[in-house]
Design a binder for these strands. Structure first.
Length: 798
RNA sequence: GCUGAUGUGGCGAAAUUGGUAUACGCACAUCACUCAAAAUGAUGCGGAUAACAUCCAUGUGGGUUCGAGUCCCACCAUCAGCACCA
């Protein structure tokens, strides 16, 4: 009577598909639950064993919610624009559309083989013109509200992909996707003003149920700081040098200034600079370095004094030198700093190296040895002397504002989102450039602006988009004045499509709106969104930004897209290292499903360890899970009739319902699986299981192992299917034992146990304890006895 | 360097949130079934000692407590992320 998982799993998957068992209802009067997993990028390598970890987890929650009577939306789709398909296209001269379709088909088949309860009728694909129509529409709305703008700026340029990258996409100085070196390059780019939403993106985290580490990471990424902007006059000039500082109270200790190599002031004042050649030489050298190299040489500071000009410290009118150095970044603050070497480690190093003045303005430390970076009472600071940090900051800020020399200022690390890609395989940016009218969005009724068919996917020599070669497509007329005009040839980044996809699932076939008002009202927000930690500061932040914008223009009814956000740990190879082809430790999910079946695969991924921690794959352990399912199948041999739990199992059954129900909500899937195993062991010990017990057991296990449980449910003759059944209930009173094994301790060390009735009188307990343990008390003095009701009895002895 | 995690048997891991440390699984050993093996079922399994008794064990060292894997302080190790943020 061995379990034929292949036939059983196929049978149920076909049935679910035919009957649309898991399709969400459009009856908007029911209570709803919306669970979301990050839709996959359909790579050529197929599904990774890491994908099902997240998908199984939320599948379990989704299946449980359905049994609890919710109208569940658990959708799936494909984030299919992206560089790997395009790089493959370039190499093999196949249209990325074709490769993408192949990959999607493969992924779909793999996902279906795992028995996820996705609503396949709502499948979406970001490369579908009916989908990206609305991605383009959102872009036009952003443009209309002034949140999309074009600017020339030094950007990270990938020498391999020939595309500009957002800072967020650069990992250790190399391109996140292709690994090529990233250099700085001037380029005209579309940008999105995410910085305008910085404060709201911080504030609105408070009301969300995100894991704390996710909130912390987003807050740190946005990087709010409070300080002041201060203007420094420049000698023999009307120019002023604006700096941002978080410590305006240390102004008296500012002994020199540093500007970043890209700072505009140098150009403006070049006539007055006496060592211009030397300065320009330094600028040139700095431009050759990537951010990575700048960071790497962090031990040895470099810089050149800009001679011929000086800055004037506004608090004491002292003239101080201005230096140029690449430890100051043009992209943060104002690109210039006032240096307070006594109290900043970097400034201190720089000052020591170039022999600049160091003036201590806070009491404490030993500034002959190192910078003193802690708080202290102000000294050498005239009207600030004797004040603490907070008071001094307030006083100096008032002082600066009164004299119009500076003002309080909040600053963010977050930068605007570089939204242009010089690539083919992305959404075309629906903008037209007209000599007369400038940039004009195309009329909304012309959307989608589809990608033209091309044969050559290579980027142009200067990193131009492949679309730049499509003269016919480019030349158009201005929607505003009708004169000849040219289309934008850049496309959108991969994050565009994924910034709003959860909305499209709500009403995926709507051709009038991105989703109907009713659907949006009903399904928003996503109740639970699980995904990788690596998307915390990119995708998750971007989609929160877009959602907030859509809220502002009245498209969506809530400020935030996701109510709860959790993340799963990575699955490593059997050797404990990240799976990669080069290491040869990749586990292919197809082979696992083929050898063990989907249910075993799912149960194993949930059992392998705590959900949010990394776990290594183990072939031995998965065999244990296969054995567990076989044991369940073989319980049929001793099944007996019965409409109620038997006295021997009642407690176990009620406890299991309680435990599994709460474990699923808390993502403690591993301990749920142990609960099931313990139950099976118990039934084997009893050598019987009645139908009532079996039924409850099957429903509880169903979200984890949907195929075998449905099959057994049918075989045992229960009416209908589990998916049309309801989640079992428990009675709290029946989870509590009426007999308790009470541990007895001496000084916290276990000396024995006794059995007492639940809530037994303390006097009786004491009596029983002493009866049991007095022989061991001989020769000892009892100092104190502590009884914690129903828990423990501790005797303090000497 | 900074930030954040994590350290429990041979291994993956539990621990009612301060109350019997090692549940559950893997591996291993013994037994049953078998001509035999596999599969399956049953039993055992942290360490020390002859011991059912005793002592020692949750990275290390302190502390708080009747009682600490859990709380506090210091340190060590491993992993991940960030990188001159003014």
């Amino acid at each position: 009577m061995s379990y034929n998982f292949k036939a059983v799993e196929k049978k149920w998957q076909e049935r679910w598909e035919k009957e649309g068992t898991f399709n969400a209802s459009t009856d908007y009067t029911k209570k709803k639950w919306y669970g979301l997993i990050e839709f996959p990028y359909p790579s050529g390598q197929g599904l990774h064993v890491g994908h099902p970890r997240s998908y199984t987890a939320l599948d379990i929650v989704a299946r449980k919610k359905r049994l609890q009577g919710y109208n569940v939306l658990y959708p799936i789709g494909f984030d299919a624009f992206g560089l790997p398909a395009e790089n493959f296209a370039i190499k093999n001269h196949v249209h990325p559309k074709i490769i993408t379709k192949q990959n999607v088909d493969h992924f779909r088949e793999q996902l279906k083989s795992l028995g996820f309860s996705f609503d396949w009728s709502r499948e979406i694909n970001t490369t579908d013109p009916n989908y990206y129509k609305w991605t383009q529409w959102i872009f036009i709305q952003l443009y209309k509200k002034g949140l999309a703008y074009k600017t020339t700026m030094p950007i990270n340029f990938c020498t391999g992909c020939k595309v500009g990258l957002a800072n967020e996409e650069v990992v250790n100085g190399v391109c996140e996707r292709c690994g090529s070196e990233v250099v700085q390059k001037e380029k005209s780019q579309w940008m999105l003003k995410i910085t305008e939403y910085a404060q709201r993106l911080i504030d609105d985290l408070d009301d969300l149920e995100f894991l704390d580490k996710i909130k912390t990471q987003q807050r740190n990424w946005i990087g709010r700081s409070e300080g002041a902007e201060v203007k420094f006059k420049i000698t023999n000039s009307d120019e002023e040098l604006l700096v941002y500082t978080t410590r305006p109270d240390t102004l008296f200790g500012a002994t020199y200034m540093v500007v970043s190599p890209e700072h505009q002031m140098i150009k403006k004042l070049q006539d007055k600079i006496t060592n211009l050649d030397e300065v320009k030489d330094y600028q040139h050298k700095a431009s050759l370095k990537s951010d990575f190299e700048r960071a790497e040489i962090n031990k040895e500071k470099t810089g050149v004094e800009i001679k011929g000009i000086k800055a004037i410290n506004p608090v004491n009118n002292k003239e101080i030198p201005i230096w140029i150095s690449d430890y100051v970044l043009v992209s943060y603050g104002t690109g210039a700093i006032m240096a307070v070497p006594a109290h900043d480690t970097r400034d201190y190093e720089f000052a020591k190296k170039f022999g600049l003045d160091i003036i201590q303005v806070l009491e404490g430390g030993d500034i002959l040895k190192e910078a003193f970076t802690e708080d202290g009472t102000h000294i050498n600071s005239e009207f600030l002397d004797g004040l603490n940090k907070e008071d001094a900051i307030n006083k100096i800020s008032d002082w600066l504002e009164e004299r119009n020399i500076g003002q309080r200022k909040v600053n963010y690390k977050l930068r605007d989102w570089v939204f242009s890609r010089q690539r083919y395989w992305g959404e075309p940016i629906p903008m037209v450039y007209c000599e007369e009218c400038g940039w004009v969005p195309i009329p909304e009724d012309e959307l989608p602006l589809t990608l033209p068919e091309v044969k050559d996917f290579e980027p142009g020599e200067n990193g131009e988009s492949p679309l730049a070669k499509q003269t016919e497509w480019i030349n158009t007329t201005c929607p505003h004045c009708g004169k000849p005009a040219k289309r934008e040839t850049d496309t959108m980044p991969q994050w565009a499509g994924s910034s709003w996809y959860y909305l499209r699932y709500m009403d995926p076939h709507n051709d009038k709106e991105l989703a109907s008002k009713e659907a949006l009202e009903y399904w928003t927000q996503v109740d639970w969104y699980n995904g990788g930690m690596e998307h915390t500061t990119l995708h998750l932040l971007y989609s929160r930004f877009w959602h907030k914008f859509l809220y502002d223009i009245g498209v969506v009814p809530t400020k935030e897209p996701y109510h709860k956000r959790t993340s799963h740990g990575m699955i490593l190879g059997t050797n404990g290292e990240k799976m990669s082809k080069s290491k040869g430790n990749v586990i292919n999910p197809d082979e696992i499903v083929d050898e063990f079946g989907a249910d075993t695969f799912r149960v194993y991924e949930m059992f392998m360890g705590p959900f949010d921690q990394t776990a290594s794959w183990s072939m031995e352990s998965i065999r244990g899970c296969a054995k567990f399912l076989d044991r369940i199948w073989n319980m049929q041999q001793f099944v007996v009739d019965g409409d109620e739990y038997t006295p021997e199992t009642e407690k176990m059954m009620h406890r299991a319902i309680k435990k599994v129900s709460s474990d699923i909500e808390e993502m403690k899937f591993n301990t749920s699986v142990s609960t099931f195993m313990t139950m099976v062991n118990e039934f084997y010990k009893l050598k019987k299981i009645n139908k009532a017990e079996f039924r409850t057991f099957l429903i509880l296990l169903n979200p984890f192992a949907p195929h075998i449980t449905e099959e057994l449910y049918e075989t045992l003759g229960f009416e209908g299917t589990i998916s049309s059944s309801t989640w079992p209930k428990y009675e709290e009173a029946k989870t509590i034992a009426d007999e308790i094994t009470l541990p007895i301790q001496f000084n916290g060390k276990l000396k024995g146990t006794i059995t007492i009735a639940k809530d037994e009188e303390e006097a009786t307990v004491k009596e029983k304890v002493h009866e049991a343990i007095d022989s061991k008390l001989e020769g000892k003095t009892v100092v104190k006895e502590i009884y914690v009701k129903n828990r423990i009895y501790n005797i303090v002895v000497r």
